[in-house]
């Protein structure tokens, strides 16, 4: 399934789509597959598979520690593609969330080819803006992959327009100025940013950063097409007594959040 179909399906049901993130390779490669597929079974519409990176500069401590562990355990880019393949075999589209250097090192064209072959839907690039590099967009287009770039509360109207013009699939709006991690409040800036973003594009706009509860999901679903949850899922795995308990906790949160995006 593509992300567009997933967003359309949610829209047809009169609700926002739920997007869930976990890094590949934590607590193990198979463990991350188990958690991500459980997430889908419990109601997540679109899955973000994190590609572990040594210098994750917009991730807070929760994602950093899981990613560090995944790297210490030897998780490779090939492992990430295997996780994507397993998730893509479920009902939900899988996009990769990756900092630029691991993709650059793999080769933009090679990564696009191999991700498409694994059934991946696209890539979210948190530290790559559309104007930063010439290699990614053509490679992604050639293989029919979604290119999801971020817009931020600090983005000018010109930059939002430039960014959404390069996006395919959906647009990722960061709710607050900051790094990933759960927050009590999702910023007031988010609704305004979604409005400014929608003024430039017909693509769905998903809101992420800091979302952890069903109530927050409900609040965001009122004005956005998608709600992205990351650190809260990772926290469930980090706190679990064993991998099976982690998978159960992730599924429980996914079910909560899925109810949240359906609440009005």
């Amino acid at each position: 399934m593509t992300t567009s179909v997933a967003f359309e399906k949610a829209r047809a049901e009169g609700r926002a789509a739920l997007v869930g993130y976990l890094p590949a390779g934590y607590p193990s490669v198979d463990g991350s597959i188990a958690a991500l597929t459980a997430m889908v079974a419990a109601g997540v519409d679109i899955v973000e598979v994190g590609l572990p990176y040594s210098d994750p500069l917009i991730d807070g401590p929760v994602i950093q520690s899981a990613v560090d562990a995944a790297l210490r355990a030897g998780t490779t880019t090939t492992d990430v593609l295997r996780v994507v393949e397993a998730v893509a075999a479920t009902e939900a589209p899988a996009v990769v969330m990756s900092y630029w250097n691991p993709l650059d090192r793999y080769g933009a064209a090679a990564f696009a080819r191999d991700l498409a072959a694994a059934g991946g839907a696209g890539v979210i690039t948190p530290d790559l803006t559309p104007d930063a590099d010439d290699t990614w967009l053509p490679a992604a287009r050639e293989h029919g992959l979604d290119t999801v770039f971020l817009v931020a509360p600090s983005s000018t109207p010109e930059r939002i327009a430039m960014t959404t013009a390069a996006c395919r699939g959906f647009v990722y709006a960061t709710s607050v100025m900051g790094v990933t991690g759960t927050r009590e409040q999702v910023g007031d800036a988010a609704a305004g940013l979604v409005e400014r973003t929608k003024a430039t594009t017909d693509l769905p706009v998903a809101v992420g950063l800091g979302v952890s509860t069903a109530a927050q999901a409900t609040e965001i679903a009122a004005y956005a097409d998608g709600v992205v949850v990351g650190s809260a899922f990772v926290r469930r795995l980090l706190d679990a007594a064993d991998p099976a308990a982690g998978v159960a906790a992730v599924a429980e949160l996914a079910a909560d959040l899925a109810a949240g995006v359906r609440e009005r």
Binding site: D127, T129, A152, S155, T156, R159
Partner: peptide, 12 residues
């Protein structure tokens, strides 16, 4: 060189 950073930093 160039600028490979999150969009949030571009304005600054």
């Amino acid at each position: 060189g160039g600028r490979y950073v999150p969009e949030a930093l571009i304005a600054a």
